[in-house]
Design a protein around this nucleic acid. Structure first.
Length: 225
DNA sequence: TGGTGATCATAC
DNA sequence: GTATGATCACCA
């Protein structure tokens, strides 16, 4: 990760204050502030906005498997909004563990750890607006409700059960109420080790947990309606 | 046209 | 390859 010019926030309050100060600014302003060049589009740099916001807010975790703001236990998620101000894409959470997950409990899972406290930063993502002119929206801190947690946990447990039974390759993105499992790799030739139907190790495509837009849309509605 | 499956950049 | 950051692009 690029060395951050901006110190880490020392409290939730400091973080949300900083995040709110970005609202209404466009991506050109933010990139200029930290001396970053702006790509013409995201085709060859899909994570650019997320990394831009990380640096602007002083995130520290880099590519560790920890929340972005380690000292605060808060995960940063940008969320792209279409012209109707609803989520344009699903939200990536973390890699799906395909091996050595026996006995893993929900509260020890990467999904739980990343979602228990999230700073959502909405970003305009209407393709009719060029990247440099897209504006940052109103950020907010969020934790799943008890009902959300129940559904997330039950999705997670069902998926992990299938994986432990060697069914990972039968899982499609149609499954899961709030969570879904989809490929997560540079391309289809990337492989990792999982469990096959015979219970033995088998090479397979790496996968990730994602939040359905149905769920993130609800989160936004509960905040802004 | 939106969701699923596929893919892109980068650090280590 | 595995982790971070996600969006692309095709097809039902």
């Amino acid at each position: 990760m690029t060395i951050s010019l901006i110190p880490k926030p020392e409290s939730e309050n400091e973080l949300i204050t900083r995040a709110l100060a970005l609202s209404g600014k466009n991506l050109s302003q933010l990139a200029t502030d930290i001396h970053w060049p702006i790509p013409e589009n995201l085709n060859h740099n899909k994570g650019w906005i997320g990394q831009l916001i990380e640096v602007c807010l002083g995130a520290t975790a880099g590519n560790l498997s920890e929340p972005d703001f380690q000292n605060l236990g808060i995960e940063l998620k940008t969320i792209p909004l279409n012209s109707r101000h609803t989520p344009k894409e699903t939200t990536y959470v973390c890699v799906v563990p395909l091996l050595n997950h026996t006995g893993l409990q929900w509260q020890d899972s990467c999904v739980y750890k990343k979602l228990k406290r999230v700073l959502w930063v909405p970003i305009e993502a209407d393709p009719a607006v060029i990247l440099s002119e897209r504006k940052v929206g109103h950020a907010f801190l969020w934790s799943p409700t008890a009902d959300d947690m129940e559904i997330l946990q039950s999705d997670w447990e069902e998926f992990m059960e299938l994986i432990s039974l060697g069914q990972v390759e039968s899982i499609t993105a149609h499954q899961g109420e709030y969570l879904q499992i989809r490929p997560k790799a540079a391309n289809a030739s990337v492989i990792t080790t999982g469990i096959g139907q015979d219970g033995l190790r088998k090479q397979t495509l790496p996968r990730g947990f994602y939040l359905r837009t149905l769920f993130t849309k609800q989160i936004l509605q509960n905040i802004f309606s």
